[in-house]
């Protein structure tokens, strides 16, 4: 995910922020704020085209025969349509015994991303609950420090963490090492976002549970978690995309081997050898972005909600 850090904004706009409600209820009431209608339409179409064409071009390229990719551009398919699945066959299946095809990396990406999404979400929910609903001295300072940790460049943390992994835990170069690294690097943002949601839970509900004699563990499990499902979903998507799309953490903690490394790393290697891989790169790139795109289009509503919650409410 590109936007690893989301910061709080000013209060006051949140009530109108849930897009869907607005589209349904507010459409008729609102006034035209468009500047000049025709020019605006043209500009919008141009922007939409510029934003789509690069991806579309790559998508078309991925189905073109090798010689076509090397000798002319993807727009020639409109004159001379020729398509093949060979590129996908090659990147997914062709392989020697110890060398790699993308399918192995694809499996790695999943094996890394699923736990690396679950772990920080759960740990962050617990911490966020404590920061939001257990009053203690220094809670504010601690919360703000955690928020500020987002700015530590990951590069700074690589070597010390790797030392811990190799000398104390003996897990360096394994998938669990990548889980732990992603969990740590994801925590500041996820705690912040979860805190935004959990602190919004009406105090009456929590109080009522307390009056009934429930302790914090019970409240957390029976009240807070069920109420936070939408938040868990939207923040989970965020974290999943972030992990799936990450290159740096994987590069260092996976050891870069076929057994552990995710798709992004293999893709980066292939880009580094552009001339050799030119004909398979579009297909390879699409294999790597297909999962995020599916997640994105299927769960866009949650995704947007997570984004809005993170950025507008402190």
């Amino acid at each position: 995910m590109s936007t690893a850090s989301v910061v709080p904004g000013t209060p006051g706009v949140e009530e109108a922020l849930v897009e869907d409600q607005n589209l349904r209820g507010g459409k008729a009431r609102r006034v035209k704020t468009r500047l000049t209608s025709r020019a605006a339409t043209v500009a919008a179409i141009v922007i939409a085209a510029v934003w789509t064409i690069p991806t579309l071009g790559l998508f078309i390229s991925s189905f073109r025969p090798e010689t076509d990719i090397r000798t002319n551009g993807w727009w020639n398919v409109f004159v001379n349509p020729q398509f093949t699945l060979d590129n996908y066959g090659e990147v997914l299946f062709a392989s020697g015994a110890s060398s790699a095809n993308l399918l192995s990396y694809f499996i790695n990406s999943f094996a890394i991303a699923i736990p690396a999404t679950v772990f920080p979400i759960v740990l962050a929910s617990m911490a966020a609950y404590a920061f939001a609903w257990i009053r203690f001295k220094g809670s504010d300072v601690m919360f703000i420090v955690i928020f500020a940790l987002q700015i530590v460049p990951l590069q700074m943390a690589l070597i010390p963490l790797l030392q811990i992994f190799s000398q104390w835990l003996h897990i360096s170069g394994t998938i669990p090492a990548v889980w732990v690294a992603h969990t740590i690097f994801g925590l500041p943002l996820v705690i912040f976002l979860m805190h935004n949601f959990i602190s919004e839970i009406p105090g009456d509900i929590i109080e009522a549970a307390r009056v009934d004699g429930a302790n914090h563990a019970q409240i957390f499990l029976r009240v807070v978690l069920p109420l936070s499902v939408p938040a868990l979903a939207s923040i989970g998507i965020f974290q999943f995309l972030w992990v799936w799309n990450d290159l740096l953490v994987a590069l260092v903690f996976s050891g870069g081997t076929v057994d552990v490394a995710p798709l992004t790393q293999r893709l980066a290697e292939m880009v580094g050898n552009f001339g050799r891989n030119q004909e398979v790169l579009p297909a390879a790139a699409f294999v790597s972005i297909i999962v995020p795109l599916i997640v994105f289009f299927a769960l866009q509503r949650f995704f947007v909600r997570g984004l809005l919650a993170g950025s507008t409410k402190g």
């Binding site: 995910m1 690069p54 071009g57 790559l58 390229s61 880009v271 795109l293």
Partner: peptide, 20 residues
């Protein structure tokens, strides 16, 4: 969605797209 979509693509994937 069209303009928002690149947010879901990795930097490396975006790099490949734009290299072409």
């Amino acid at each position: 969605s069209i303009v928002f979509m690149p947010m879901a693509i990795s930097f490396v994937g975006a790099g490949v797209i734009w290299t072409f």
